[in-house]
Design a protein around this nucleic acid. Sequence first.
DNA 1: CCGAATCATAAGCCATGACTTATATATTCG
DNA 2: CGAATATATAAGTCATGGCTTATGATTCGG
Lengths: 106, 106
Amino acid sequence: MAYDSVLGALADGTRRRLLEHLKQHPHAVGELAVALRVTQPAVSQHLRVLEHARLVQSTHHGRRRIYTLSHDGLGELKRYLESFWGDVLSAFAADDPSPPDPVPAS
Amino acid sequence: MAYDSVLGALADGTRRRLLEHLKQHPHAVGELAVALRVTQPAVSQHLRVLEHARLVQSTHHGRRRIYTLSHDGLGELKRYLESFWGDVLSAFAADDPSPPDPVPAS
DNA sequence: CCGAATCATAAGCCATGACTTATATATTCG
DNA sequence: CGAATATATAAGTCATGGCTTATGATTCGG
């Protein structure tokens, strides 16, 4: 159940904006802070969440830290959602909208 | 940007469990409360969030309210994620890992 | 070395959210 | 109508999370 951290990471708008920027090309922390008009610590904290969710990776370049988009988290989420869709679609392919079983009359 | 509510709805584990149950077949509120071992108001509140995200639909059956999985929210999220993947893949297909432009030396 | 630059971490504030216990609002049945 | 069922809503509590300012830890340039 690691898609938990992935979904949690994606649920925040600022983090999605970070991903949108990193989708273009890698970025240093300061650049992202300027681009998003947020303080640098806020960006660092968001990047930590994204890194824990394996949505980004980081490499050291001199005294700067370059963050890059990662596929691991996206792939994990994709598999989870596709399994969900698969089950839903197969359930509908069965074309058997089983009526809600009545709650056991207590 | 309606995938915002969808991602927010999916970010909670209890709501994902609700969806897993509704994936099997429609359910009434009380059944879900018993199944998830949560109080009924909690289930109602979660279902309201899921309905607002268009992940579930509800129909009245007598004095019970039957909740069913909906495709609208899932489709919306699917489109968003696939557009994201598409961009990422095309960016990688370009095979041009443009180096991070230096932050303007202030 | 030393100061500037770059980033992470710490600590605190405030809003949001998930859950609870009442209570209100239908709806069915005798 | 009146009692019971089924769900929604209200109100309060507690934890979590996103943001800020301050500070610590590295790293580069002169």
